[in-house]
């Protein structure tokens, strides 16, 4: 199983929802569950993320990445995309008020997403397939005038 490392950055006050940490380096498997399930032991919307006390999920150097496909049997897989990344961020890194980050399967209206410095609307939004080394920025515009 190969892994993909992606740099995630938060701006415009959105970092406050993620423990006030702006930049995160995240490694994820290249194939993930098509229904965006994060891990069998940590269902989406979990109030207590498994890694709440640590900074980030383990990097490749720190040990093997748990394979989210393992044990899922016939579960459908898809290449890692931005939509899965967002579900992952919400389940594992978000520390408060998930409604300010996501709305259904997409970002909340008022959050600008840049993929490698380009508006994600030009890149297929949530369906964009992440490559190793991509930089993805989430910027909140909701902090008024």
């Amino acid at each position: 199983m190969s892994t993909i490392t992606v740099k995630v950055e938060f701006g415009g006050g959105l970092e406050l929802l993620f423990g006030n940490k702006r930049v995160h380096s995240i490694s994820l498997p290249s194939f993930v569950p098509a229904d965006n399930t994060i891990a069998p032991s940590s269902p989406p919307n979990s109030e207590t993320p498994l890694l709440a006390e640590s900074d980030d999920p383990p990097l490749p150097a720190n040990g093997p990445i748990p394979d989210p496909m393992k044990g899922l049997g016939e579960m459908k897989a898809k290449p890692l995309d931005v939509q899965y990344l967002m579900h992952y961020l919400r389940s594992r890194l978000l520390t408060e008020r998930p409604e300010l980050f996501m709305d259904g399967d997409t970002v909340r209206p008022g959050v600008l997403v840049l993929i490698n410095d380009t508006d994600w609307e030009l890149e297929g939004e949530g369906t964009y397939e992440i490559s190793d080394g991509d930089e993805i920025v989430f910027i909140s515009t909701l902090h008024g005038g």
Binding site: G12, L16, L112, L114, D117, T141, H143
Partner: peptide
């Protein structure tokens, strides 16, 4: 628009302190 403001601030390295949290 707000979206233009957000992109402009990001690309020009403008520091946005954010409004006081609760008044938002």
């Amino acid at each position: 628009t707000m979206k233009e403001c957000a992109a402009f601030a990001w690309w020009n390295g403008i520091r946005v302190p954010g409004r006081p949290r609760l008044t938002r």
